[in-house]
Design a binder for these strands. Sequence first.
DNA 1: AGGGTTTGCCAC
DNA 2: AAACGTGGCAAACCCT
Length: 570
Amino acid sequence: MRIAVVADGEGGGWIQELDGSPGPVRRVADLADAVRRAEAEGVRPRGAASGPGPSGPRPPRWVWSSGEDVYPDLVRAGARVSRCHDVALTEALLLGHDVRHAEPHSLGAAWARLHDRPVPEDPVRPLGEGTAAQPALFEADRSTLPPGTDRLAALGEVHDDQRRRLAALPDRERMELLAAVESAGGLAAVEMSGDGLPLRPDVHDEVLTELLGPRPPAGQRPAVLADLAARISDAVGRDVNPDSPAQVLRAMAWIGHPVSSTRSWELERVDHPVVPLLLRYKELSRLHSANGWAWLETWVRERPGPDGLRLGRFQPDYVVGGVVSGRWATRGGGALQIPRAIRRAVRADPGWVLVRADAGQLEPRVLAAVSGDAALAAAAAEDDLYARLADQVGGDRERAKIGVLSAMYGQTSGDAAPLLATMRRLYPRALEYVDAAARVGEGGGIVRSWLGRTSPAPADWQARTAGSEGERRRRAHGRFTRNFVVQASAAEWALVMLAALRQGLPELPEGAGIVFFVHDEVVLHVPREYADETVRAVAEAETRTRTTLFGDTPVRFPLSTTVTDSYDER
DNA sequence: AGGGTTTGCCAC
DNA sequence: AAACGTGGCAAACCCT
């Protein structure tokens, strides 16, 4: 049963059952309560026989304009849903399949296209408006529908149209699955942003103080950085601001070691006493500016815990499908790059644990599965794919790894070339899979992931762009499509895994569940007594994901699952 | 002063 | 070792 939902922005809304002929419009004063009840009791298809069995009550699939808009208020009000159809996310997938990635994908835009009306731009979303935000007294109406439009009717109409468009696709089943898991991702994103990654402010401060010295007044360098800066100037023989690449460049020339950039790998090749100082400064200064005290204040919400303990939550906004490859992007706090140095501060609450599941070597495993290469699949049946590959290639593990990454990223320099020749001989189908994608990209064409997510057409593509610049651009796009078929399919694996895990979790207390997700890794925060059940749910999610996506493939997707107090323990 | 671009580093 | 895919972000830089 599908139920369309429109919120009124004041806690109430309108709902309407959609299956078959649309049911009556129902006005509800408390939307969260209505949702909660339908989830708990399930919804029986109208006209179905009563009694248990397959036609018995199930939670509905909620149809809404955008989970990002509608769901945070529900989650705040304590109502979680199990399934939805997210019109905005689905529209983006459908437009992408049609190579129309740049067109607006809101409900209003989809409705306008149906009615040959001017298509509104997608609303620009300010930071921190997700579940983590304080509830606004009166939520601004974010509808992109023209004023006066019957929003519920428009929603039903676009939903029906999207289902027809999905059903008409040649890869129908896959795209329908993709739309469903993308929508589920929208739910998970809102939920985990609302709960947040537990992070202890006192431990974070401890880490920073150890490395940088005590917290300085705003705008000043911490003691360790100030000291390093002074020693750098001393070593050079004149004043240098190590934060300024231009000044460092001039300083290196001044001391007789000219470099073409101040990147650390380039500095590392220079033998001069200033180099280790510069490298240390860069490392620590990066930590200070990206994840220092200012970061903590801006992105981590703090509340008192038991026994005077300071508990914090890092609550980034996740942008589902925010990357062309279908990976998630994030807004705020750089959630995709929590540096190793501060992971010590990510701690479970007292009596709780972090359950962390990490899919190792995901991309080569996905390549083995999608290409159907028997030899690579045999290696991918093992726990350590690269070690197995090294046996087959007749080299060490590190070289085998470079060979695989070269094939997936399109690297040609260094010692990749002879390695690739070996790979082509041993894993012909896998290599042909990515080589073919690269050829399509070099020709300006599009490629699709396993489930049908589509690469965007190259910007300002001119097949006849002459000269080396045109050639360089065509090659670059070839590397992009080469990588796309792997990265986008890997993102689908992760998305299906997340959706399966979300569904398969045991009943957990308030605040427990998935709290973090990044590409091929998921972190859950649960009371200790739920750890075993949670670990089992993770394992079951992996099995479900593999069979859902790849049937009876020999490829395995081993998840290393750990139960710890701290994110830095492995 | 303020906005856009460049540089360089972090993560997967 | 070298610069190869996807991103976010902060500070410096450059221009208006």
